[in-house]
């Protein structure tokens, strides 16, 4: 549990972070999104005391961060940055084993942990352990960066635009890997990005920032459904918002039971996103899809007309409320 209450940071006359309160429950993935210079990185770096905050209080599990020795605090918190920050004069294995060695783990335990992590991140030990950072591709280097951050199994992981410098394909692959990993490890993650799609895809909790203040926070779906103002709406992609929202929900959550009508010709697995379903309707020129389960057995139907009606009633409910 990370809690920030009324936290501010001033650099001379400029205020980088202005009176921010935020609480991130353990095991949740929180994304800070905003334009550059909005104070999101500053916020991140205040949590592991790379930058001291000027006002307010930051607590980890109820303990104010000032009560910890900063060095010990940082060894408990994983940290990943865009440029990886890998040590160019150390091999991959040595880079990954850094924090366990600082914590004086026995050598065999460090080595075992390094090999385990290299396995998790798809970096064969024989091939990569003795390579140097400059011999790695961008994606490989960032995998090593994340592995290094996770080496001592910290509860908290801070990530500052970790995938910002990667090409779109690699970025997507690493996002998927991170999602899989998070489903298994349940770390408390604070993830800074300016890429809204990335934030929507990864986060449980989304925080939109502007000029050092929080404009709106909530679940990605809640933000998509009810953006607070024009800034949040434009951050969420303006006209594309509907599709982004559709990308966050599964087909099987919107299907209706199979009626007596002839089943639609096009089939879609229930685990696919609504966005993929809509795309399939456009491709196959139809307004109905048969939803199937993993073994291709029909389990329901997705109908465009029903979807729209559903959205209309929901909106009506919202207006009434």
């Amino acid at each position: 549990m990370i809690e920030l209450s009324r936290v501010s940071k001033r650099f001379g006359d400029t205020t980088a972070v202005d009176d921010i309160s935020l609480s991130i429950p353990s095991g949740k993935f929180c994304a800070l999104v905003g334009t550059s210079g909005c104070g999101k990185s500053t916020m991140l770096r205040m949590i592991n005391r790379l930058i001291p905050h000027s006002d307010g209080q930051i607590t980890l599990d109820g303990e104010p961060i000032e009560s910890f020795n900063p060095v010990k605090l940082r060894r408990r918190i994983g940290y990943v940055i865009q440029s990886t920050g890998l040590f160019p004069h150390w091999s991959v294995a040595r880079n990954i084993g850094l924090v366990p060695r600082l914590l004086k783990w026995p050598t065999e335990k460090v080595n075992a942990r390094v090999e385990e992590l290299m396995g998790i991140f798809g970096l064969p030990v024989d091939e990569f352990a003795h390579k140097y950072p400059h011999q790695l591709s961008g994606g490989q280097a960032q995998r090593v960066g994340v592995a290094r951050a996770l080496a001592a199994d910290p509860d908290i992981l801070l990530m500052d635009e970790p995938f910002g410098a990667l090409d779109p394909l690699t970025r997507e692959k690493l996002q998927d890997e991170l999602l899989r990993l998070q489903a298994k490890l349940h770390k408390t993650v604070v993830f800074v990005t300016h890429d809204m799609d990335e934030a929507l895809k990864l986060a449980d909790h989304l925080v939109v920032m502007r000029d050092g203040r929080i404009v709106q926070q909530g679940s990605p779906l809640a933000l998509l459904q009810h953006p607070e103002d024009a800034f949040v709406e434009s951050m969420l992609g303006g006209l594309e918002r509907g599709l982004k929202q559709a990308a966050l929900t599964r087909v099987k959550d919107h299907m209706t039971s199979l009626g007596s009508a002839i089943p639609a010709h096009s089939r879609i697995p229930g685990d696919f996103t609504l966005r993929q379903g809509l795309s399939m309707m456009m491709r196959d020129h139809c307004d109905r899809l048969t939803v199937v389960d993993a073994s291709d057995v029909p389990i329901g139907e997705l109908s465009l007309r029903r979807l729209i009606k559903e959205a209309q009633t929901e909106r009506g409910v919202h207006r009434a409320g």
């Binding site: 060095v71 940290y79 940055i81 920050g85 040590f87 850094l98 290094r148």
Partner: peptide, 14 residues
């Protein structure tokens, strides 16, 4: 590089 040094601090090096 400053970010290498910052990473060193952030990893908990004295």
């Amino acid at each position: 590089r400053p970010d290498t040094l910052e990473a060193a601090t952030a990893m908990g090096m004295r």
